[in-house]
Design a protein around this nucleic acid. Structure first.
Lengths: 226, 226
DNA sequence: GACCCTTTTGATGCATGCAACATAGCATCG
DNA sequence: CGATGCTATGTTGCATGCATCAAAAGGGTC
């Protein structure tokens, strides 16, 4: 009994999507309908429906009569997606601050406390997953289902996990990031929507800059190792 | 030769979607696959693919083994969608202000000028379409394709056109709205991203309030008329 | 008359087969 | 030797048929 009773089995859509977002399949790789059909032991028809939807989500590209390929967002698209990420997470912070106490707020407190430990310890693996949790919990805590939907689509497109690790490898970013998380949490607890949103956006922007200009921090890492 | 050479014929997805968003089909109405297949002279297979995608967009609900129905967003969902609309259009205004001169900026100038005329004249029909143009042009002018995508999905879900008319029927709202448009335009021209975003968000918020609390303005209109 | 069980109906879910087309490899010709 | 046209192959696009299931309709019983 691996499954808890109320967790439905993942749909075909989710299973195929996770094959892509998990990085199991390289960008540019062709995705044959027949091979997917064999792999998941269904016919081509449901596979085709899934692929069409994944195309709509921007994860794959279906070139008619040619084939289906995993899409790799180019730099411009990544910038565009991060601009959206900034305002969506900013909105989440503001909504959560307005909302007041809720289960997600307690979770946030725990996550931030734990992440302060791991960031100071330099445990980037643990911290990376805590960063994920922080942002996801914040979006969930906004109590806006449509926001959750749009946000998850966005994160799927970014294949975010592939990128976060890179950022956090920049020494010093983890502790900075952790401090920013604490600030945001405090502002939410103080019911300061404007402050929470502004700080959140600055935080996302800073993380984005780390990602898009990786060289600067890498230079710093050399200093640390010496 | 109705079609201009570079405008592709609307896809099946677009045709069926427009049947829903145009209000041609009432919410709650069943959408049979076979009847749609007959109407568009294709088989059920492509229809099914389209319906699955429309479900993902939130426009319809597919109840397995039962049927497909046009979804009507409830009040809570509408509030959620407008919260998103606020930040997305705010982002668009900020990006456009940062961007500087562009074709869309000139279009905006023309639209605002024309809408000032129609709003003062009380021509709500004309003004309603100009409002549409204003917001769409602003989003287009942000030069962020992902934003355009998310925004259009959002507007489809809102079936916005059905609602705008109601708002503008509130006497006085049109002129207020028009004045706000002018303010936003000026701030974009002045390259003031923060001001443009803030004003845009306030504008969207005000319009939303008009929609969700229709009674207030009706009361005010009595005062104004007296 | 109300309730429950059975039947019927109509819808979707999926498998399969064929058609259409883009691409690559190869033979042919200049 | 290079360019061009042809053919082979693999892919998607779509139509159709059957299986499956939910909900309504009907009949029987209490």
């Amino acid at each position: 009994m691996q499954n808890s009773p109320d967790s439905p089995p993942p749909t075909l859509l989710e299973r195929i999507r996770s094959k892509i977002t998990s990085g199991e399949l390289e960008p540019g790789n062709p995705l044959s309908e027949v091979s997917l059909a064999q792999e998941f032991d269904v016919s081509r028809t449901p596979i085709r429906e899934v692929l069409k939807q994944l195309q709509l989500e921007g994860l794959i590209e279906i070139r008619p009569k040619v084939g289906t390929f995993i899409r790799e967002p180019n730099r411009r698209e990544i910038v565009e997606l991060f601009q959206l990420k900034e305002v969506l997470e900013g909105l989440a912070a503001a909504l959560m601050a307005r909302r007041g106490p809720c289960p997600e707020l307690d979770q946030l407190e725990e996550i931030v406390a734990a992440s302060e430990v791991s960031s100071n310890a330099g445990d980037t693996d643990t911290y990376a997953s805590q960063v994920q949790d922080f942002h996801q919990t914040l979006v969930d805590g906004a109590d806006n289902n449509k926001l959750v939907e749009q946000y998850s689509r966005l994160m799927n497109q970014l294949a975010y996990f592939r990128l976060v690790r890179k950022t956090l490898n920049h020494p010093g970013r983890a502790v900075d990031s952790s401090r920013e998380h604490r600030q945001i949490l405090t502002m939410i607890q103080d019911k300061d929507p404007f402050g929470a949103e502004t700080t959140m956006r600055a935080h996302v922007f800073a993380s984005t800059q780390e990602l898009l200009v990786p060289q600067t921090r890498t230079t710093l890492s050399l200093e640390r190792d010496s």
